[in-house]
Structures are given as C-alpha cells and as structure tokens.
C-alpha cells in the first residue's frame, strides 16, 4: 500500500455489481493508487459484503475534487430529505 490511507465503515444497503444486486455491509474508502481511473492517486470507494466473497464489489474511483463534490451533494440531499421529514435528524 503506498499511502496507507484507508478506512472501512460498516453500512447497510444494496449495491449493483457485475453479478447484479447484493446486500452491502461495508465500504472501504481509500486515497491510494486506483486500478482504472488515469490518476496516480484517487479517492477509491469499494462497497462490499465480506460474507459474499470478494466478487461482491462495487468500485468507484474519483479525483479529489469529484470526491469532495460527492460528499457535499450527499450532505445537501440528506438535508433536504431531513427538512421534508423523510429522514430523522442525525
């Protein structure tokens, strides 16, 4: 690992991978060498479920600007959902 910048968090949801939808139980977030996006380093998201094996994976690789935009957009959408009574306050 070149940067060792990686954290995992347990989550609950569904992801659609190469084999179809599966239950997602954790996401690894790293800032390190990507596999595909043509950058030296990227913000890498690996949604998975250890119980289903390594093939159960949805991978996304973003540049830092895009990752920050994603974080801000997620927060903005959750705020609107909270304001509309769809989501309980954190």
């Amino acid at each position: 690992m070149c940067t060792m910048i990686s954290q995992q968090v347990a989550i609950s949801g569904s992801g659609k991978g190469a084999g179809g939808w599966f239950t997602v139980r954790q996401v690894s977030v790293s800032y390190d060498h990507p596999f595909d996006v043509p950058l030296e380093y990227a913000l890498n998201l690996d949604f998975g479920n250890e119980a289903l094996g390594l093939d159960a994976r949805v991978a996304v690789e973003l540049d830092a600007t895009s990752a920050r935009a994603l974080v801000a957009t997620i927060q903005a959408v959750l705020a609107r959902a909270e304001a509309g009574g769809y989501v309980a306050p954190a």
Binding site: M1, S6, Q8, Q26, S28, D32, A59
Partner: peptide, 19 residues
C-alpha cells in the same frame, strides 16, 4: 490468504484492511 477472485477485487480487499 485474503481470498480469490479477479486480481483487482482481491487487491481492493487487501487495500481495505491496510495491506
């Protein structure tokens, strides 16, 4: 020991647990 699959999927899992 971390498992088997496409090399990228295995390596991503290893990356996720800090090598």
């Amino acid at each position: 020991r971390e498992g088997h699959g496409a090399p990228e999927d295995v390596a991503a899992a290893v990356r996720g647990v800090g090598g």
